[in-house]
Nucleic acid binder design. Structure first.
Length: 505
RNA sequence: GGUCUCUUCGUCUAGUCUGGUCAGGACGUCAGGUUUUCAUCCUGGUAACUCGGGUUCAAAUCCCGGAGAGACUACCA
């Protein structure tokens, strides 16, 4: 068997949405699993839809995701260039070849004329198709002499090249995910292969490049399934061996029906893109998973399980584990509705698995950026270690640990009502005195001696602990009291108790 | 409209090829437990085979028919 070579071939028409990321991911996993190569090819044959910055966005996003390419314009490769606009000169000869073989023909119909035919057909509740029937009555080389055609071309009449779909044939194709697919050629239309602007359409460029780049497997979204027969016939017309095809199920809207789109993210309040994006023309912005605080590992993990499963009950996967476990056979056929809650859960799982050091470092940066708080890295690490398992995102750490960085200025009324008793102030005084006398201020020792002190004196455990919590945190939440005490330090703790007693009395 | 694809808990899915476990897991949700706090965590509950026929001792699984959903239907990819 030949070497496995797959490609991810986006169009730089905007930010890459998560469906595209998943397609890239599955290509990557398949390539790595089979010891093959992953290629990035930019399909920019439609110059009217070009969006500045989109290509850069795609490259950076996939890099953030940990999806690496073996060949591209960025890392090189022996089949470059890997951008279709830079391969423009290659395509005409293939278009000519099909013309010579009689597998394609020249059409002079203008876009406006065709538009008119479509409208007329629609008015009669019919569909206009450029096919074996209608092409007999349209302005193309099938109905003209060679001289006529040459003359028109010579005087600069714009023309397109259309593929001539053979009549009365059944095309039987094999899809790695869907099995056999049968299509009658009479239901197909003569697609344009070469545009009047001198550029190939997707269909031609795609087949030519896949062939030239020795692509072995085409793994792409289900929206391409209807053009598979065209592609198969193109390979046949050229006399080339076709790659294997696999059409992935679509990513659907969480509510209602339909393909997931940019609008859904705005509407439902979750990112549809891997990274933040600003549209250069409109200035519109779109949020990204990266900026929303997701770890790339969690994002990829979630995406991998949306349309594929390992057949075991394992849900948390590293990229390497995904590569080991992946197979196209275990991809599902039906579209998957995107689920925000599960996505958050994946991030939670990954956050818990991260080291205190790593989370602490992220938290330190977050504190500086969002709260303008400078904090010692070791302190941030200790705080992160104490509360990281309680949250989904680094940014949520604040709500669980703000009291480590600022003393309470007010006290949660509900907690005060529930926990602050008549003799609490007096008890806090005694506790402060005892705490002041603790020599070894480690969490372990505080836990030990504080408990001994309370039980030894037959104090009410709840009265002391809940009171202290209110003094130190300002609310009825947070880690164990001894942990808070130890991290805050004796001096700060005593200050807070004194201040709290003064306020609550 | 036409062509193609798909159809198991609210969601992601296992199971379908090779009929035979109370249809399994996860997210969500609900209830307990742990935490003398809150959160996490743990335990348990909840909830599905699109419908109708047929084959069979037995059908989510095989066959036929209907229904629904999605994609495509551009000189866009």
């Amino acid at each position: 068997m030949n070497e496995v070579r797959v490609r991810f071939a986006p169009s730089p028409t905007g930010p890459l949405h998560i469906g595209g990321v998943r397609t890239a991911l599955y290509n990557y996993l398949f390539a790595k699993k089979n010891g093959g190569k992953m290629i990035l090819r930019i399909e920019d044959t439609d110059q009217t839809r070009f969006v500045p910055g989109a290509e850069k966005y795609i490259v950076e996003s996939l890099d953030w995701c940990g999806i690496k390419f073996d060949e591209s314009d960025y890392v090189g490769g022996e089949y470059g260039p890997y951008k279709q606009s830079n391969r423009k000169h290659l395509y005409k000869q293939y278009s000519d070849e099909l013309l010579e073989k009689g597998c394609a023909y020249i059409a002079f119909d203008t876009a406006e004329e065709l538009e008119q035919y479509r409208k007329e057909a629609e008015a009669n509740k019919q569909t206009f198709i450029y096919n074996c029937q209608s092409r007999k009555h349209l302005r193309n080389s099938m109905n003209m002499s060679k001289e006529e055609v040459d003359a028109l071309i010579a005087n600069g009449t714009p023309y397109t090249v259309r593929f001539m779909i053979p009549e009365d044939r059944e095309i039987v194709m094999h899809d790695l995910i869907r099995g056999e697919v049968h299509v009658q050629t009479n239901t197909l239309d003569d697609k344009v292969l070469f545009k009047s602007d001198g550029m190939p359409t997707y269909h031609l460029a795609n087949i030519v490049d896949d062939h030239l780049m020795k692509i072995s497997h085409v793994i792409r979204g289900e929206e391409w399934l209807p053009s598979m027969p065209l592609h198969v016939m193109l390979y046949e017309a050229f006399g080339w061996e076709a790659p294997q095809f696999a059409h992935l199920p679509l990513l659907l809207k969480p509510d209602g029906n339909g393909k997931l789109s940019k609008r859904d993210g705005d509407r439902l309040g979750f990112p549809v893109f891997p990274m933040y994006w600003v549209d250069p023309k409109t200035g519109d912005t779109a949020s990204g998973y990266k900026q929303s605080g997701y770890y790339p590992e969690a994002f990829i993990n979630m995406l991998a399980l949306l349309g594929w499963n390992p057949g075991t009950e394992q849900e948390i996967f590293t990229m390497d584990e995904l590569i080991q476990a992946f197979s196209l056979e275990r991809c599902s056929k039906s579209g998957a509705k995107f689920n925000v809650e599960k996505t958050k859960w994946f991030n939670h799982e990954w956050l818990m698995r991260k080291s205190e050091e790593e989370v602490g470092k992220d938290y330190q940066a977050w504190l500086k950026a969002e709260k303008n708080i400078d904090v010692d890295l070791n302190f941030a690490i200790k705080v992160a270690g104490l509360v990281k398992d309680r949250v989904n995102f680094v940014k949520e750490l604040w709500d669980q640990s703000f009291f480590f960085f600022e003393a309470p200025t007010e006290y949660d009324p509900v907690t005060v009502k529930k926990r602050w008793k008549e003799n609490s102030a007096e008890m806090m005084g005694k506790a402060a005195e005892f705490i002041n006398g603790i020599e070894d201020f480690s969490a372990e020792n505080i836990d030990k001696v504080l408990n001994e002190w309370i039980t030894g004196n037959e104090f009410n455990m709840g009265l002391v602990m809940n009171g202290l919590r209110l003094m130190l945190v300002g609310a009825g939440k947070g880690p164990h009291i001894h942990e808070i005490l130890a991290l805050l330090g004796k001096e700060e703790a005593l200050k807070r108790i004194e201040a709290g007693v003064k306020v609550l009395g």
